[in-house]
Design a protein around this nucleic acid. Sequence first.
DNA 1: TCGTCCTAGTAATACGTATGACTTCCCCTC
DNA 2: GAGGGGAAGTCATACGTATTACTAGGACGA
Lengths: 340, 340
Amino acid sequence: MTSRPTSRDVAKAAGVSQSTVSLVLGGKWSGRVSPATAAAVQDAAERLGYRPNRAARSLRLGSTRTVMLVVPTLTAPFFGAVYEGAARVAAQHGFGVVAYPWPEHAGPADSPFAAPHEAIDGILASSLAEDALSGFAGTPVVMLDSDPAAEAPTVVFGVEDGMRVIVDHLAGLGHRRFGHLASSIDQWTFHARGRALADAVAAVPGATLVREDAALDVADAKDAALRLLGGPGRPTALVCDDDVMSAGAYKAARARGLEIPRDLSVTGFDDVLLAAALEPELTTVRLPADELGAAGMDALLRLLEGERPGSLSLPGELVVRGSTGPAAVGAAPVHGPLHG
Amino acid sequence: MTSRPTSRDVAKAAGVSQSTVSLVLGGKWSGRVSPATAAAVQDAAERLGYRPNRAARSLRLGSTRTVMLVVPTLTAPFFGAVYEGAARVAAQHGFGVVAYPWPEHAGPADSPFAAPHEAIDGILASSLAEDALSGFAGTPVVMLDSDPAAEAPTVVFGVEDGMRVIVDHLAGLGHRRFGHLASSIDQWTFHARGRALADAVAAVPGATLVREDAALDVADAKDAALRLLGGPGRPTALVCDDDVMSAGAYKAARARGLEIPRDLSVTGFDDVLLAAALEPELTTVRLPADELGAAGMDALLRLLEGERPGSLSLPGELVVRGSTGPAAVGAAPVHGPLHG
DNA sequence: TCGTCCTAGTAATACGTATGACTTCCCCTC
DNA sequence: GAGGGGAAGTCATACGTATTACTAGGACGA
């Protein structure tokens, strides 16, 4: 036999009918098939190296046991980790995951990838506006790192806590003048980070916050950071929307002759590989991307089974490294402490 | 109608038989169906939003039009880019790509991902030993960045050229004492890089090469680099097996009080985001990972159509940035220039 | 001894598509 | 007017599975 064996081949080998094979291998034979026969079937299946044909099974069951993961890109390690977390959980339930990189600026028709409407049971979409998925109406969706106000169940990071813990850390080091190197990307994640930072700074008596927006790349972030560090009364701490922007902040600091962390503290967000590669190593908030993927897949599988999973928030963790230090004394605000 | 329309629904709406719908939508109706009927069918399909059921089609055709991409991980941007390149080409031919992260040290059974033997038409495997794919015998395979001596068709980078161009660049700057910060990973890619570097250095009159092995992470690379920079007659140029290791080299240089590129030149390999984030920015060889994926997928699709694609080598490109400079005079070999 | 229930299985069918074999119908030629 | 042949479709079937409805044969109680 040159092609793959079917359940009928197994049946013939075991001397039973195809139905029996299906019953046994489906695990639903309690009281329907004798243990001896079941064992014979399993033995035959093993011997022939039988694997159920997935297409046939999908056709019969009306379910592909495949889930689509939509991400802006896979070239960012963050989303790679999301994929791996999601795929791990999916595999435990016999589901496969097909990744679908989809730049946020692209419309539904722009995607170079053929939309596999028909081949999936559900969608896990990361960092995307919900309406980008029009055209998939009717397919169960779970959104990751997106506006929790959306209709679909959502899994996000606890950005508020993350920013608060950063600001607390910096405030504890004496910082009062904060700069925000913000992403100009129109995405819920970054809006949330901006709001969270503003709130956290507002909770620190006497603290000020200035903000510059930039694209998510090193060169552009450097330019924005240069502006932040330009005038008098410059910030003593730069809070960046993500680690890559921090690299730009580093370059700007060097260009201005500022030494990190002596003259300037810098923080990131995400804790990707880059964070530990920088000099000095970057203080940042670690976001467990794989857990995001795993939790999202968990929610999606629940949704597929008819449950209605609630939205969820995952905590980040502050990782203190070498890029943050005490605020220079001379850099403190001239006026004394306010509001006690 | 709440569930998705089938070809039979379209047939009813267009007033024809299901066969006709299949013929028209399959595009094989030249001389079998009148243009008017064909138009009516297409119109009805459009109106109902008909999409062929992929499972049924797969079952009928015996082909899933899905290809598996096996990579060590997706958390490395390099492999994310490979995926995107492969998926782009696949989509143009109506194929989907399911990624399958598989750490090289894991055996076939160790993978947390259920092996979808039955659901794929072919395999694109990156940075893997060929025998890791036992158990997929009979499935067409194309190997990426792997030993071209393998049975399967292969697409690799022209590592020899890459290393030669690095060494030429450095030799042109006066360097003669080279250090190799090598990956300890037992993988064809890195063996090839080691050989290529040795050959390139051997071609430079009076040049020497010392080597240290390390894991592919910043901390371990730093330790190895410290050893390389330890003794007298230390290398004036450090050639690293990849960009991440270069970050370790930077840290070691700083620890030794060496300034890059004044006291020490450093080069990387791959040109990932990190390369441009380092200070100074890293001179490296850019490997077009997406082209690797695209070329590999192209070869695989050919293979699936019965052709026998040959192996292919893709050129890298030297990107000169700030981490390489003239060899310090005092560091030059004591004997004068040889061979003009 | 007959009806009933349980056990251990089998037969038949449907999922939605693609395609080879057929069927009409009509035009054309001799 | 008989026959050939092309155009335009339709019929029937198979892909491999999961599951529902059915059956054969005992065992058992009354």
